[in-house]
Design a protein around this nucleic acid. Structure first.
Length: 224
DNA sequence: CCCTGATTCGC
DNA sequence: GCGAATCAGG
């Protein structure tokens, strides 16, 4: 099997949507989950939480066979973060979409966010690892979505409708009949649209010493 | 033992 | 580049 454009596309979409490698491999067919993972890595898609979801009664002992007990000569340098993703300090997008929209959907591409939070004119500021100190705990959104969206949703923006240019922000919860994705045009360089970038990347800078962030890939809405 | 993703490494 | 083998964790 070769990685055709379609297969890569499916892989990317499913991977970014939270499908497991096994599911992806099964859907694509003819390949093992290792192949999926390996390809995903080569595509620069890696870095995904590995939630062990045992709710799946699927058995795939494909890559399980090797009577060779490796003496483990090579240690495993666990590192190499953010390879291809520059601003991909992406927090898991699992807010309460419904509530979020209802709360402040007034904000538009105007990128004006007169919020109490410390947010730059761009709409949001990336937080450097050193910036977010322990004293301030931003209390991220609840963990509700198990990263297991149904592969077939209604008409809305379904899983397979996702592409590089539309917002992948989940609307609703996976499993619900009306679960879908935002589908709006993405903020270039991000997986979400401008609006949802504002939610996903809410930075909380210490109101003191707010140094100007030099690289701000987010230049606001850009029509093209 | 099952699953998961991550990584290595021979092809 | 590909993916099986392997590792590491839940």
């Amino acid at each position: 099997m070769s990685w055709t454009e379609e297969r890569i596309e499916t892989l990317t979409k499913m991977w970014e949507s939270g499908s497991t490698a096994s599911q992806i491999a099964e859907k694509l067919g003819g390949i093992s989950r290792n192949a999926v993972i390996g390809k995903a890595h080569r595509l620069g898609l890696k870095s995904r939480p590995s939630p062990v979801k045992a709710g799946d009664s699927d058995a795939k002992p494909a890559a399980k066979a090797s009577p060779t007990p490796t003496p483990k000569p090579a240690p495993k340098p666990k590192a190499s973060p953010a390879p291809a993703a520059p601003a991909a300090a992406a927090p898991k997008p699992e807010p309460a979409p419904a509530a979020a929209e209802a709360k402040d959907d007034a904000e538009e591409e105007g990128s004006k966010k007169p919020v109490a939070r410390s947010i730059g004119p761009g709409g949001f500021l990336r937080q450097n690892p050193g910036d977010q100190g322990p004293p301030t705990t931003p209390a991220p959104p609840r963990r509700l979505v198990p990263a297991r969206p149904s592969e077939e949703i209604a008409d809305k923006t379904s899983l397979l409708d996702l592409n590089d240019r539309i917002c992948k922000w989940p609307i609703g919860h996976p499993g619900e009949p009306d679960f879908h994705f935002c589908g709006d045009k993405v903020n270039p360089g991000f997986p979400y649209c401008v609006e949802h970038c504002g939610h996903a990347y809410q930075a909380q800078l210490p109101r003191r010493d707010r140094r100007p962030p030099p690289p701000l890939p987010y230049g606001g809405p850009r029509v093209r």
